[in-house]
Design a protein around this nucleic acid. Structure first.
Lengths: 217, 217
DNA sequence: GAGGCTAATGACAGCCACTGACAATTGACA
DNA sequence: TGTCAATTGTCAGTGGCTGTCATTAGCCTC
């Protein structure tokens, strides 16, 4: 961002993004038109579409940043860590350093509100899930390389990442709909759910192994 | 479907669905307009929207049937089966009896082609994934009830279903992009992937436990 | 620092998915 | 058979999104 032109572009994009998130989190995603966003920033609708492929992309732009950061984080994990452990550490690290990544673009508080909007807006949730699947493919490749296995013949990389992704989606869902919507809560939920993964998969739950007696009723 | 009116409605819906899938699988989803579909069946565009909430719904209608069948199948599993085992049996049963369920509406061959279209069309894949998440919520509830645990305090039902769902998505993806696109292949892949689940999650893969030596390179 | 070059924007027209409203039609049923 | 209700068609309109072309505005050279 050296020239004036580039700085101007940067500012326009940022303004559009900020306006979009602000409107989405107040009027709702469906309740906001692209014209609304463009008008807020005082550019033409056409210009909006030159910065974002669509309404969706604007809504998910910040998430995209954090996800990319997460993938990089996995890449940089020490090779001695087991696959699931590398994913776990990378995710936790992501939540711990969320502030630095997000705040440079939009207030974290806005990011968090947007998280809930995504989770509660069907079309956005769908796009988010599809994107997650794409990311899982990349992660599987990273893990396969780390462990020196061939993804084309060995299903374990994809399976591991899919399992991990499944746990994370459950976590996100519970987090966004729960009462404690803080980063700390997200971190704790992540740890807790990953710990529960083993017990959940081992046979019947009637033999209590998790501190959740089924006799409570 | 007793009266003439009801029969006519049934036929219109079926014709629309068939026409939609036929067009989607030949011209592609994006390459097909709702007007195309309506015109093929010789009804107005408005009528199409009276039968389907949107293009998406038409594209996913048959999948919806099989998914609902799957959920029912899980509900009817004998209570002594462990959660994962119940899900496994229900899925395999679903593939084994797919013909009977699907053929009553559209040719199975059309259903299979549509499966690939869904997997390769971003917006359809997204919708499919979102729907899967909804189903997972239902399944978690079924499992929780079976096992007598409280879903609100015990994350294991949701975790188990999410893990299972993750495995199934990996399976679907490999199936639709692989060379052997037969029901038999889907069944085998499902069994194989579920078997690999354990090995995939237990620590490092460098200690070979799966018949996939990493020394192939 | 004037003028040419190129990138960014605006204005406009148009496509497609989808919806509301109302009129026309057609099966149901007394 | 005539009335009632459900089904459908028509029309108008909104919103997301794209292509096109003229206009503007930063950039760079002479």
């Amino acid at each position: 961002m050296e020239t004036l032109r580039e700085r101007k572009k940067q500012r326009t994009r940022e303004a559009l993004l900020r306006a979009a998130l602000e409107l989405f989190t107040t009027r709702g995603y469906e309740g906001t038109t692209v014209d609304d966003i463009a008008e807020t920033v005082d550019v033409s609708q056409r210009t909006f579409f030159r910065y974002f492929a669509g309404k969706e992309e604007a809504a998910l732009a910040v998430q995209e940043m954090t996800v990319n950061r997460f993938v990089e984080s996995v890449r940089e994990r020490p090779p001695h860590e087991a696959p699931l452990e590398a994913l776990r550490q990378a995710v936790l690290d992501g939540w711990d350093t969320l502030n630095e990544v997000v705040e440079s673009v939009v207030p974290v508080e806005l990011y968090l509100r947007m998280f809930r909007v995504i989770e509660s807006t069907p079309v956005l949730l769908a796009a988010h899930l599809r994107r997650s699947e794409e990311v899982e493919e990349v992660l599987a490749r990273v893990l396969a390389e780390r462990e020196g296995v061939d993804m084309d013949t060995d299903p374990r990389p994809r399976l591991t990442v899919a399992v991990f992704g499944g746990v994370m989606r459950v976590t996100e869902r519970q987090w966004t709909t729960g009462e404690d919507f803080s980063l700390r809560a997200m971190r704790d939920l992540t740890v807790s759910h990953l710990e529960q993964l083993g017990p959940a998969l081992t046979g019947s739950w009637r033999t209590d192994t998790s501190g959740h007696p089924y006799t409570e009723t």
